[in-house]
Design a protein around this nucleic acid. Structure first.
Lengths: 192, 192
DNA sequence: GATTGCTCTTGACAAATGTCAAGGGCTTTT
DNA sequence: AAAAGCCCTTGACATTTGTCAAGAGCAATC
């Protein structure tokens, strides 16, 4: 399972075998069945999670009981609640598996240890953070100016591999529209 | 004008006089009149901007000609289009002054120079980036699950100093609702 | 092969929000 | 003091989207 992560890192940055040994020595692994939680609302998030195989979602449940998906995390994506991890406070979010998955976990302290000992890794983390900001900007952009239909077509063109893999109602939840509206939007656009 | 920036930094990190000299030596300054652009759609963004005094907004104009505000930047905030700066491509965004303002500018290369020579500054930038991610998460959270009324009350409780300072139609634009809806929402909530 | 559960669709209706148009109250400019 | 320009509000109406309820199609499970 560590192999996937190693390949991912090798693709991005140049690390020595020693670096990899360090990283592997503090990595732990977890297999998740479909529908199994990695993090549950109320828990404190203590790990950075890297998806080696499978598919996770990061979501919350609002005061009306509705689920809202903040992030999809397929293979080679990071997930977890950084806010809870930094603050030590219980998370308002849930992370669970949409498919059977294999996850690599790095404890907060170990993650920081790696950042502090391996400069290239630290730079990489910050670069990833920057990219993340862009993705979030795009999402706010979409939520401010697109109609339901535009949100959907924007999503499938941007994330075709995700839209093929998750049920439609989850896409609706990610986009902030109801499953019924999504269904209608789809049937209208196929007519054209 | 550099004083404001110096105080801001001293409050956050410990820097030597030498560090400050370096930073000051590559800083430039700009005064903006109300309504003046700092960055205009189509320009390439070449600077990180720090607001010493005044108030800027970071926004775009959609295909229907409607403005959507991505960020408010009062004193002690950073602004600019990082995407355009990193890519070297023309910006899709505008930055202009809501009030007469004084801005400190750091060219991309100088900013990177400081990051590379002053580790504490670099760490601080990355910490700021992390906080920024949280703010963006909150905003997506709000856009996914709140009604117009809730968005507004959430905004004024989170950013009272901003809501006192900008016209209501800009708050509406930031929240992704029409000025009319905001007006109605406000009149309803004062009745209660 | 029946049952269960999940997913998606559809219809009828309700609610929220947007659009257009008008006007009033300010402030700034002339 | 008049004029112009913003900003905000309000009304009437249109449009978008949500809600509720029902059912059909599939796949997984027993």
């Amino acid at each position: 399972m560590f192999d996937t992560f190693r390949k991912y890192l090798e693709d991005k940055i140049a690390l020595t075998d020693q670096d990899f040994e360090l990283i592997e020595s503090v990595s732990s692994f977890k297999k998740l069945r479909k529908r199994q939680y990695l993090l549950q609302e109320g828990d404190v998030c203590r790990f950075n999670a890297f998806v080696c195989r499978g598919f996770l979602r990061y979501y919350y449940v609002d005061h009306k009981g509705q689920e809202h998906i903040m992030q999809f995390a397929p293979e080679n994506y990071w997930t977890g609640d950084r806010e809870s991890m930094d603050s030590g406070l219980p998370s308002k979010y849930n992370v669970d598996a949409i498919e059977d998955s294999e996850i690599l976990l790095l404890k907060k302290e170990d993650f920081e240890l790696i950042c502090n000992t391996v400069p290239a890794f630290n730079d990489f983390v910050n670069k990833t953070l920057k990219k993340n900001v862009l993705v979030l900007h795009e999402r706010i952009h979409a939520s401010l100016s697109l109609s339901a239909e535009e949100k959907y077509s924007n999503f499938i063109s941007k994330y075709p591999s995700i839209s093929n893999r998750v049920p439609l109602h989850m896409i609706a939840s990610y986009l902030g529209i109801s499953p019924e509206t999504l269904s209608r939007v789809r049937s209208q656009s196929t007519k054209k």
